[in-house]
Design a binder for these strands. Structure first.
Lengths: 181, 181
DNA sequence: TCCCACTATGTCAGTTCTGACATAGTCTGA
DNA sequence: TCAGACTATGTCAGAACTGACATAGTGGGA
């Protein structure tokens, strides 16, 4: 029973071998528009994946009390990942704290609420600008079948999401402003 | 240390008193475009909220081994909710299984992948149509300060999200089709 | 009259996730 | 040469969440 986090790790390893540290860095915030995890979770999951024979590693000399482990996909791991990709995803959790705050926003002081959405708008605009720079660097979509297609398609999803978010924040600010000081 | 789920419960109770069962129904899928929770979580959280003095209840005769408990916000609960609303939300978890599958999609069989996105497209179109019907039933945005403003604003967010999702699924299907059979 | 769906509350085991703690080698620049 | 940032692996306690189990009254229809 591999968890979704397990498949996230397999998906990154399918691009090439990496250490647990590299995986944690890849799944931290910056470009990770698909899944996040702390390093403590990743090391634990790698041990499970290894017990299931989906990944293997080679020990190398390096920093840390236990040296360095470079993980790679096994044939079983690749097969499991391939089978998982086209299965329908389980229902989205749909847990969005800003939307929940919005649901309760009729209780809030208008000034503080405008401040909240102005900050969120700035954050999403910044993120959108970053994604647009990344998209420009691509110079057009790679063909499906190319690993970079995965990166490009998730970036495209991120772009659409941030645009939607920016639009919604602006709509909220308009609504909040037209209702007086 | 009230959890986000706790605030979700407070936000629903701010509209009026409800039983745990009603809360669970409100936080199940249908209209819940903001937060979800199972009834087992809700009963446990209600007990915590009560220990913290943020909610109270009146026991009534009714079904079940323990009868019926109608919960309501206390003054402390309302104050806590009000203070929380305008605080910046903690970072979005950003855990989207479909996007993760997309990241690994270069490994998939094209036919199965098109099927996956066609199904997702149909689901989002259906959801969008439902939200559009709800929006039409509103007949324009209520003013901020009205509890229904919270509902309308979250619905607006849901509309934008589903439109973004529909667009992205269509874009994916185009990319996947132009690459041959 | 009996069955079933619905209302209603709760526990529990197991999984997932977060944040803190712990350890230690490498490399760069002041 | 020494400090500090970065690489690198791991444990652990506690919170959050899921799904199954358990119990029982109410109300409607066959």
């Amino acid at each position: 029973m591999t968890s979704t986090l397990g498949f996230a790790i397999l998906a990154v390893l399918a691009r090439g071998e990496r250490t647990g540290y590299d995986l944690a860095a890849a799944m931290r915030t910056p470009v990770g528009y698909f899944w996040t995890a702390g390093h403590s979770q990743i090391h634990a999951e790698l041990q499970k994946l290894r017990a299931d024979g989906l990944v293997g590693f080679e020990a190398e000399h390096g920093p840390g009390p236990q040296g360095k482990k470079v993980y790679h996909l096994t044939a079983d791991g690749l097969a499991a990942l391939r089978a998982w990709v086209t299965e329908p995803p389980r229902a989205r959790p749909e847990r969005d704290e800003l939307v929940l705050k919005t649901y309760a926003s009729w209780l809030a002081e208008p000034g503080l609420l405008r401040r909240l959405f102005a900050d969120q708008l700035a954050m999403h605009e910044e993120r959108l600008a970053g994604y647009e720079r990344e998209e420009a660097a691509f110079g057009g979509p790679p063909p499906p079948g190319d690993p970079r297609f995965g990166n490009y398609a998730t970036l495209w999803c991120g772009l659409g999401y941030e645009r939607h978010r920016v639009e919604w924040c602006r709509w909220m600010l308009e609504r909040l402003s037209s209702a007086g000081a």
